[in-house]
């Protein structure tokens, strides 16, 4: 008897739904990273993976190990919280870096110019 069979059927189905949602969203995010045309559009793709992509998988993991060990297992929630707080920092710095580099080369998108220079 594997550990998966020890789960109550309804819990197993809920975990399956969460994990499926999370991994499909992560895949769509990575697909967007490849398909989208310019850098600023691509900056949005990883947020799919880090918001509900990670959230779904981590919630599934919390439910699975909490049910198996019959006690609340919370480290995953910490990991999810960490992702929620750290991803914006990286993406923000990346966005600023990209704009900075584009400006330095004189090919920044027109609508990014400060009002005074328009």
């Amino acid at each position: 008897m594997t550990h998966l069979e020890q789960l109550p059927p309804s819990v197993a189905l809920i975990i399956a739904a969460f994990v499926a949602l999370g991994s499909i969203l992560t895949l769509i995010g990575a697909l967007g990273l490849i398909r989208l045309g310019n850098f600023y559009d691509r900056l949005h793709a990883p947020t799919l993976a880090t918001s509900w992509g990670a959230g779904g998988i981590l919630l599934g993991s919390v439910m699975m190990f909490s049910t198996l060990g019959s006690r609340l297992v919370v480290p995953e929630l910490f990991l999810g919280l960490m992702m929620l707080v750290t991803t914006p920092v990286t993406l923000m710095v990346l966005g600023r870096a990209a704009l900075h580099r584009d400006r330095a080369e004189g090919r920044a998108p027109y609508d990014t110019l400060p009002l005074s220079k328009k």
Binding site: L13, A16, V19, L27
Partner: peptide, 20 residues
């Protein structure tokens, strides 16, 4: 059974994540 479904979902999820 639900356990079998979960096993398949976990396997497919690994495939999805590796593709990503």
């Amino acid at each position: 059974t639900p356990a079998l479904i979960l096993a398949w979902v976990l396997l497919l999820s690994q495939v999805c994540l590796v593709s990503a």
